[in-house]
Design a protein around this nucleic acid. Structure first.
Length: 281
DNA sequence: ATGGCAGAAGCATTCTGA
């Protein structure tokens, strides 16, 4: 089973590139971030015609997440539902559409677009840390020890110095600060594994290159898009790759897709046949 | 320290991203 994450930086602008990549790779589940479109303008039927069930959680201009799946969705959550934290707090963190999750083919899929944070001393940085803390509480409530979990998306955090092209310049700054990494580790709580690092221990592998300053051509990138899996899936993980060729498209997203292959028995009776409306929420 | 580049909204320019 192929599962991918891709910050597409506008699903409508990138529609033909996403389509081409789907036709090339044929992922079973594709999680998108920065769709940048209201739900009523999302190109839903386009992906349904490609054989996917689709759930979306978007807003005008900014943010927005979606999941495409060849299998039916169950237990769909859009945004935070966090009873213990109180409705008002969840409401505050639900204003920006950055989280969507569902059970798919026996897996719990949690797709996130973590706030960027702007700069360390900004209000947006404060929001990023608090958003991550809220996410931690959400996972505590939603994830049980024996769940098979795939927790993926644009985290806007380089987990380690080797995930940055110039750590001597950027360590300690935005996306590479101690506070962000501690908040991320608190979310992960030792219950998840970074798929990419199972296979690749060295530096030099990036998932995002700035549009500015010729960053891609100079290969000045960061690894900030991640696929975390629960430990009980580690023996089933066959590969994890960054599809960096997508960053070479004409008018590309600034992010490349990240893709895992995981050995899960397909439950054929749950295969989405395009005529079934059970996935509609 | 600032700007570089890109997308959306909307029609000039601003806001946001990472």
């Amino acid at each position: 089973m192929l599962i991918a994450t891709w910050n597409v930086n506008s699903v409508r602008t990138r529609l033909s590139q996403i389509t081409n990549w789907i036709n090339e790779v044929n992922p079973d589940i594709l999680c998108l971030q920065e769709t940048k479109v209201r739900d009523d303008a999302f190109p839903l039927s386009h992906f349904e015609e490609l054989g996917y069930a689709v759930i979306i959680h978007g807003q005008k201009s900014y943010n927005g997440v979606a999941i495409l799946s060849k299998f039916k969705f169950e237990n769909v959550n859009k945004g935070f539902i966090n009873e213990n934290e109180g409705g008002d707090i969840s409401k505050k963190f639900n204003e920006q559409k950055r989280l969507i999750s569902a059970d798919i083919n026996g897996l719990k899929i949690i797709n996130v677009y973590v706030p960027n944070g702007s700069s360390i001393d900004s209000d947006k940085f404060d929001y990023k840390i608090k958003w991550l803390n809220h996410l931690s509480a959400f996972l505590d409530e939603q994830v049980n020890d024996d769940d098979l979990v795939c927790f993926l998306g644009d985290f806007n955090i380089a987990p380690n110095a080797i995930d940055i092209h110039a750590p001597q310049k950027y360590e300690g700054g935005i996306m590479a600060s101690k506070m962000e990494r501690e908040a991320l580790n608190n979310v992960l709580k030792g219950r998840f594994i970074d798929s990419f690092r199972i296979f690749e221990k060295n530096t030099g592998h990036w998932s995002w290159w700035d549009y500015r300053n010729n960053a891609y051509e100079l290969n000045k990138g960061w690894r900030i898009d991640h696929i975390y899996i629960s430990k009980n899936l580690s023996s089933k993980l066959k590969s994890c790759v960054i599809e960096r060729s997508q960053r070479e498209n004409i008018q590309p997203s600034d992010h490349a897709p990240v893709l895992i292959n995981i050995e899960i028995d397909n439950q054929n009776e749950d295969y989405f046949d395009g005529d079934d409306d059970l996935f509609e929420i």
